[in-house]
Design a protein around this nucleic acid. Structure first.
Lengths: 249, 249
DNA sequence: CTGATAAATGCGGTTATTTGCAGTTATTTA
DNA sequence: TAAATAACTGCAAATAACCGCATTTATCAG
């Protein structure tokens, strides 16, 4: 990894999360903490960030007081994102839906990871593009303005031809009896096909959405391989899903 | 392998992956690292990429900070964008490339306009999505990280099936004899097909790019219907293009 | 076709940059 | 205050960049 590239990555992380830890970065990028410290030093001298003991802060962080709840929800999603990112190994083909949880996964991808990501979600693609080593494939079709994802027959046909190793779905409702459900018919179709085109299906959702329902059926519990929430796997609310044979992280 | 050919290859690699390593290139092309370094040096002097210790990075990588020249240029592009947007009428199918000039056109679209926009450019799609009344169609394929556009056989096949009313191309070089040229082979292919798939072709470029050349040919002057620059149509530099039968705005 | 000229390339030696490590000093926190 | 952690310093190894020069390759006029 080139020096400039590394510094760009650090800057990206700082702007994303408002802070970085030297120790964490050093582990992620697999360079010594000294190198990270020298990078932070240089970036700080260029005024790109504020260096502090143990890491660095974003410049905008100083004056902006952050609202408690929205950051809290984002923290939950970040936990989910990190768990999800850990599942991906070099060389994998990964199919993903859109949604804020998936975006957090994209942000948590280690920079050394080499894999191919396929998605129709424009915000997700934007995140994947930032990553130094992953190949990005965009599914084309008509763009749904509110979901910011491509939907339609073309997209479905294209996904049907894919054979992915992993499929990550950000889901809005999951129930032990009814499985996962959705409120948009076309997105539900898309997710169904994505499930069919992948060896393993990973559902990512914050725990609020567990045991909730929406009108349109996507898949049954039996179709899900892995369920990721921000809770530890032994949380009581997750027990029924473990009993149903799902791997819960 | 010819020098020009080699440099085009290097540029292509930079556009695809956002970075290249001298050592890797030298091994791939089977020339000495000195030669690669000299190539990178030249390309860097031409502003095509950014040379760093160990290789080179694409310009898009760290263009977050440079604003001095780009602001001036942005005003020019806004003028172009407004002229371009005025060409589009209700019900039209419009095919567009990427590039900052096209983005400015997207921003200048009147809110009441009802039309269908088709593109593989992710930043352009983002702008189109903001618009209340236009239909947006995304061309899918592998994403070029630097150009932020989908490129490849899929994209070309898809565009070939389109029959658009207008095609807007942001171009980087135009010359009265050689026509429009490009430095990325795959993007040149894409633009060629876009021209074939449209009734009318509109080229948008700032006047700096007039009478300049790049290595890969896209189309001849005769293939262009309308040329838009920030200059008034009677500017002397545009006269040869008017004489060649192009409508200049 | 040929010789002259210019451009491009590769190589050896030198210099500069980057990086990690060990040892020391500074800062934080309980 | 003491233990833990982070930052700083100097140094050494690895790698890359640079310089000058010889060799090869391309260009072109006659």
């Amino acid at each position: 990894m080139l020096k400039k590239e590394r510094q760009a990555y650090i800057l990206h992380q700082v702007n994303l999360h408002n802070k970085v830890l030297s120790s964490l970065l050093s582990h992620e990028i697999r360079v010594s903490e000294d190198t990270i410290r020298r990078d932070l030093q240089e970036l700080s001298e260029e005024g790109k960030l504020i260096k502090v003991h143990g890491g660095a802060l974003s410049h905008s962080f100083n004056d902006v007081s952050y609202s408690g709840l929205s950051v809290y929800s984002q923290d939950q999603k970040r936990i989910i994102g990190e768990k999800a990112a850990a599942l991906i190994q070099n060389g994998m083909f990964v199919l993903t839906s859109g949604g804020t949880t998936i975006i957090e996964m994209a942000r948590a991808l280690p920079p050394s990871l080499r894999a191919t990501f396929i998605s129709g979600s424009i915000p997700a693609i934007l995140e994947y593009m930032q990553h130094p080593n992953i190949e990005v494939i965009m599914i084309g079709d008509r763009v749904s303005k509110n979901a910011k994802i491509t939907i339609g027959a073309e997209a479905i046909a294209k996904i049907r031809n894919i054979n992915a190793d992993l499929c990550f779905l950000g889901i809005n409702a999951i129930d032990i009896k009814r499985g996962t459900t959705e409120n948009d018919w076309e997105i539900a179709q898309l997710k169904k096909i994505m499930i069919d085109s992948s060896k393993k299906v990973v559902c990512c959702t914050i725990s609020e959405k567990i045991n909730t329902l929406q009108p349109i059926h996507i898949c049954n519990i039996a179709d899900i391989d892995i369920l990721i929430t921000e809770l530890p796997p032994d949380a009581p609310v997750l027990k029924p899903y473990i009993d149903a044979g799902i791997q819960v992280l």
